[in-house]
Structure formats: C-alpha cells, structure tokens
C-alpha cells in the first residue's frame, strides 16, 4: 500500500464519518439546521456512511465505489422526489439533502476511481 493509497483510504473514512455525523441534524431545528436529514434519509446516510468507513478501513476500492454509487443514487431519488412532488411529504427531503448526497456521492466515486490509477512524478 502506497502513501497515496493510504491518503485515499483516510479520505474515504473521513467522508463516511461526515455522513454518519450528519445524522445529528435530525435533532437540529431553526437557524442551525444546515442539512435536512429526517425520516428515511437518516437510515440511508448512516448505512452508506458506515459502508464508506468500512471501505476506508479495509482499503476496499469496491466498497468505496459502492458507497459513492449509493449516495449518487440517493441524490437521484431526492431529485425525483423534488421533481414529482416539490416540498414532498413522502420523503422528508429538500434541496439541502440533494446537495449533501451529491457531494458525498461524487467524492467517494472519485476516490474509488483514483485508487487504481498509476501515478507518475508531477512536473
């Protein structure tokens, strides 16, 4: 395992920890409710966050990609909910949930894809 590979794994673990930590917003109300994580989305961010943590700890590219794909799929579902129902009741989500899932999804996918790329010295 190279130092670069270890850095990628640490970043994967960190993004997973951020996802798990975001569950605290289930209790947040008012000005400091930065991200809407309520109802079903709590289970999703916890499960995918834990998956990303395991991926980082086990240096598993496959699990990293799976966690990233899971978050991107979640962002797509949130977007679909917003398109079809707007301020929907069937999923307790809004644009902040979309933004959060999108960021973690793209980040984890890129980390997974970067794992196997050969590195040469930078110019």
């Amino acid at each position: 395992m190279t130092a670069a590979g270890r850095s990628l794994d640490r970043a994967t673990t960190t993004l997973g920890a951020v996802a798990v930590a975001s569950a605290v917003f289930v209790f947040a109300r008012g000005d400091f409710s930065f991200i809407r994580v309520r109802g079903d989305s709590v289970a999703v961010v916890l499960a995918l966050g834990l998956l990303a943590i395991v991926a980082g700890r086990r240096a598993s590219r496959t699990l990293t990609l799976a966690a990233g794909a899971g978050f991107l799929a979640s962002a797509a579902v949130v977007l679909l909910a917003l398109v079809t129902r707007g301020d929907s009741a069937f999923l307790d989500v809004d644009g902040s949930t979309l933004s959060f899932c999108l960021g973690l999804g793209i980040g984890l996918l890129l980390l997974g894809l970067a794992h196997d790329q050969p590195r040469t010295s930078t110019p």
């Binding site: 930065f34 991200i35 917003l82 301020d87 644009g95 902040s96 979309l98 933004s99 959060f100």
Partner: peptide
C-alpha cells in the same frame, strides 16, 4: 447547502 433547502419546486 442550507440555502438550497428553501428553494421549493
């Protein structure tokens, strides 16, 4: 992120 939340389609 927070301000994406109150743009309601």
């Amino acid at each position: 992120i927070q301000n994406a939340g109150w743009k309601v389609p």
